[in-house]
């Protein structure tokens, strides 16, 4: 077996790695790049613990070959906080005790962010179906759904505020 050289972008940074043809993106992230935030719960796309985004689209990294990452833009849990600032979803998961053991948490956060990026004001049903590909065995999902609702609310009001400030700034100018 000869390795394949892959040039990709992970959380905005250019990354080059070599992998075997049968390695998944999850294998590459965890074993070659040391990004162990994505977890392997099933390796069949049924638990969502390995969720990442590829070119902005949510996917299970266990269902993507490492070689497919060539030229793509990969987003992982490690790229969610900006410096020392947690993403509102991360803060709300903590505040609402939306995690117990925490193994599913990175996958849920990546999936929830993807959901809110597309739909900033989801209904409870939309949240529940949006997160149906992520299994959690500890919480019964209640606190996760509440955390996503609360984060969505906060993100909407932050957006409204920044829009207001911008308008005000424009007016002043």
């Amino acid at each position: 077996m000869s390795g394949i050289t892959v040039n990709t972008k992970i959380n905005g940074d250019p990354v080059e790695f070599i992998c075997e043809a049968d390695e998944t993106l999850l294998d590459v992230l965890r074993n070659r790049l040391g990004l162990t935030g994505a977890k392997e719960g099933c390796s069949t796309g049924d638990c969502g613990a390995c969720s990442v985004t590829v070119d902005g689209r949510l996917t299970c990294s266990c269902l993507v070959l490492g070689a497919e990452a060539e030229g793509r833009d990969i987003g992982t849990i490690e790229g969610m906080a900006q410096g020392e600032h947690l993403h509102p979803l991360q803060s709300k998961f903590l505040e609402h005790a939306a995690l117990q053991c925490g193994i599913c948490t990175p996958g849920f956060l990546v999936a929830a962010k993807s959901l809110l990026d597309k739909n900033p004001d989801p209904t409870e049903t939309e949240i529940r179906f949006g997160l149906a590909g992520n299994l959690c065995r500890c919480t019964g999902y209640d606190k996760i759904v509440r955390a996503v609702q609360d984060a969505a609310k906060e993100m909407r009001s932050a957006k409204a505020k920044s829009a207001k400030t911008k308008t005000a700034a424009k007016k002043r100018a």
Binding site: R30, T36, G37, K39, T76, I77, E78, M80, G102, T105
Partner: peptide, 13 residues
């Protein structure tokens, strides 16, 4: 908590 929401927490694997 922070380790678990940022992916830093180290689990078995």
């Amino acid at each position: 908590g922070i380790d678990k929401v940022t992916g830093r927490a180290k689990f078995g694997a």
